[in-house]
Amino acid sequence: MSEDYILSVKGISKSFGGLKALVDVGFDIHAGEVYGIIGPNGSGKTTLINCITGFIKPDAGGQVFFKGKEITGWPPHKIADMGITRTFQIMRPYHSLPAFKNLIIPLWSPRAKTTGGWRGGGKHGDRDTVAVDILEEIGFERDSRVPYKIASTLPTGYQKRLELARCMAMRPEIIFCDEVFSGLSMSEIAGMLPLLEKLKMEGITLIMVEHRLRELFRVADRVMALNFGEKIAEGLSHEVIEDKRVKEAYLGSEKV
């Protein structure tokens, strides 16, 4: 059954001491889909990403399958090597390196070396050129000084793009986007949307954790809502937002 899906998550739970961050969460994702995960603050969205990408180990019983192969509890670098990578909510570029040098690291990774990375760039000898090419594709002005600036000095919008570029460079199958819109201005978001469309066109499956619902619904095919670590709704975006439990989670219940 699970071979039909690129990613299947079954019964993931995670407790930190007495706090149940995730309770029996499961979902299935088709290849090429854009899947949104929404929920109020502290509902376990980032914990879920951490569990799937291996940064924290889920409690016993949960299972994660990638293309039918179980990857539960693998170390993060092995999961990334399979083709599942992520951005971080708090932007963490390699701050002492110039922007384009940030991409040398994913281009150097074992995955990029064997599969070629983005447009085969990991196999070429000159990673610097490939890195600047990728930055140009993601909206860094090639002839300006921006790609050569030290990453920590870049504006937020560019740093968010750099996060995505870092994921793109290794040409993953799935990218988990942890709040790529947060902290961006409306015009910056407007620039970000075509990028996500482009990744989708390239056949990369996107799983987006978001607070900016309006922007998310423009790109997402399906959406799941979490509240207090439990899955409360799943489906097309307009169905989910009309769901009574989702409304309650965001706005509180109508009964006073």
């Binding site: 990408t53 940064f55 170390p75 993060p76 670098h77 092995k78 990334a80 090597d81 990578t85 992520r86 971080f88 963490r92 570029p93 390699y94 701050h95 002492s96 390196l97 040098k101 940030n102 040398i104 690291i105 994913p106 150097w108 990774s109 074992p110 995955r111 990029a112 870092r166 994921c167 460079a169 290794m170």
Partner: peptide
């Protein structure tokens, strides 16, 4: 550069599929 990346942000190096 990969080594310097480990100093700057080892999580992102892990997420790039490199064993830190």
């Amino acid at each position: 550069l990969v080594i310097r990346g480990v100093k700057d942000n080892d999580q992102a190096v892990r997420a790039s599929g490199i064993n830190v």
